[in-house]
Simulated scan of single mutants.
Amino acid sequence: MEAHLYEQIYHYIIQEIKDGRLNEGDRVSSEKDLAEQFGVSRITSKKALEKLADTGIIKRIQGKGSFVTDQLTGRQEPKHYAAEIKVAHASEEERRLIGFIIPNFSDEFGLKLLRAIERQTAAYQYELIVKRTSGDREEEKRAIQLFVSLGVKGLLMTPIHGEHYNPDLLRLVLDQFPIVLVDRYLKGIPVCSIYTDNQKAATDLTLHLINQGHKKIAFLSPPEENTTTLEERLLGYTLAFTQEGMDLNEDYILKNFKSTLPAADHTAREHDEENLKRFLAQHPYVKAFVVSEFLVATLLAQVIYALGYPLDEYEIVCFDAMDDHLGRTIFTHIQQDEQQMGEVAVDMLISQIDGTDVPEQRIVAHRMIKRTH
Rank of each mutant, 00 (worst) to 15 (best):
G236V: 12
P262R: 04
T260A: 05
K258W: 00
G236L: 10
H214E: 09
N256R: 12
F219E: 01
N256S: 12
T228V: 14
G236E: 08
F219H: 10
K255F: 02
K255D: 15
N249Q: 14
T227S: 11
D251S: 06
E225L: 13
H214K: 06
H214Y: 15
Q243H: 13
A218L: 06
R233C: 05
P222D: 06
K215H: 09
R233L: 06
G245C: 09
K215W: 00
L248C: 02
D247W: 02
T260W: 01
S221I: 07
A240N: 13
N256L: 01
R233T: 03
D247S: 06
H214I: 04
N226I: 14
D251Y: 01
G245E: 07
L239N: 15
S221W: 08
F241E: 04
K258F: 00
E224F: 11
K258I: 03
K216V: 00
E225P: 03
L234N: 11
I217L: 05
R233G: 02
D251F: 00
I217K: 05
D251C: 00
L234E: 10
L230Y: 04
N256Q: 11
K255S: 12
Q243S: 12
R233H: 05
E224Y: 11
Y252G: 00
Y237E: 10
F241H: 05
E225N: 14
N249L: 02
F219G: 01
P223F: 13
A218G: 12
I253C: 04
P262V: 02
P223D: 12
T229R: 00
E225A: 14
I217W: 06
H214S: 03
A218W: 05
E250D: 01
T260C: 07
D251G: 01
L261E: 13
L254N: 03
E244C: 05
E231G: 11
T238C: 10
T228S: 15
L239R: 15
L248S: 01
N249F: 07
T238N: 08
Y252R: 00
R233E: 06
K216I: 01
H214L: 05
A264W: 02
G236K: 08
D247Y: 11
L235D: 14
E224Q: 09
H214W: 03
H214P: 01
L248H: 06
A264N: 04
K215C: 00
F257S: 11
M246S: 01
R233W: 06
E232Q: 13
F219T: 03
E225H: 13
S259P: 04
T238K: 15
Y252H: 09
F241P: 04
L261P: 07
S259L: 12
E224K: 10
F241I: 07
L239V: 14
Y237H: 10
F219K: 02
L234D: 07
F241D: 08
T227K: 10
F257D: 04
S259Q: 08
G245V: 13
K258T: 15
D247V: 14
T242S: 14
T260N: 08
N256P: 01
D251W: 01
L235W: 05
P222S: 13
Y237K: 08
L239M: 15
P222Y: 05
L261K: 07
E244T: 09
S221L: 09
F257C: 10
N226L: 14
F241C: 11
I253A: 06
P222E: 11
P262K: 07
